[in-house]
């Protein structure tokens, strides 16, 4: 699934610049605990989170996360967006809840990065 398709499914807003909407996303991981993102090797996936601080972007950078979706319409501040731009990590914002975000992406074929899919 491409990032562009994910944007469409979630009705999301892209808040980073020069975002490659053709970027392929194969897996997703959902967490508000960055410790879990770091601990469970969810590399190369989409991160779905309700946290918007700059550590989310730095965590995504070191863990090789491909893109981040912020749920419930939460927007990170301008410095966090700038950090994401500098690291080439696309940021999307959806008004959907975390449950609805995960549900719609799963329904459209996206699967867990944590490897717990049959």
């Amino acid at each position: 699934m491409t990032l562009g398709e994910i944007r469409g499914i979630l009705g999301a807003l892209v808040i980073t610049q020069r975002t490659d909407m053709n970027k392929e996303i194969g897996r997703a991981y959902c967490a508000d605990l960055m410790s879990d993102v770091l601990a469970f090797s969810v590399t190369q996936s989409l991160l779905i989170t309700g946290l918007t601080n700059v550590q989310v972007v730095r965590t995504a950078d070191v863990a090789d996360i491909k893109a981040i979706v912020f749920v419930q319409g939460k927007r990170p501040d301008i410095d966090t967006i700038a950090t994401a731009d500098s690291k080439n990590i696309p940021l999307l914002v959806t008004n959907l809840s975390m449950f609805e975000t995960c549900g719609r992406l799963y329904e459209n074929g996206l699967r867990s990065a944590a490897g717990d899919t049959p």
Partner: peptide, 15 residues
């Protein structure tokens, strides 16, 4: 609240 401090850091460094 920032998403850290769950006691996974040192074990994750070791891993």
């Amino acid at each position: 609240e920032m998403g850290f401090g769950s006691g996974m850091g040192l074990p994750n460094i070791k891993k």
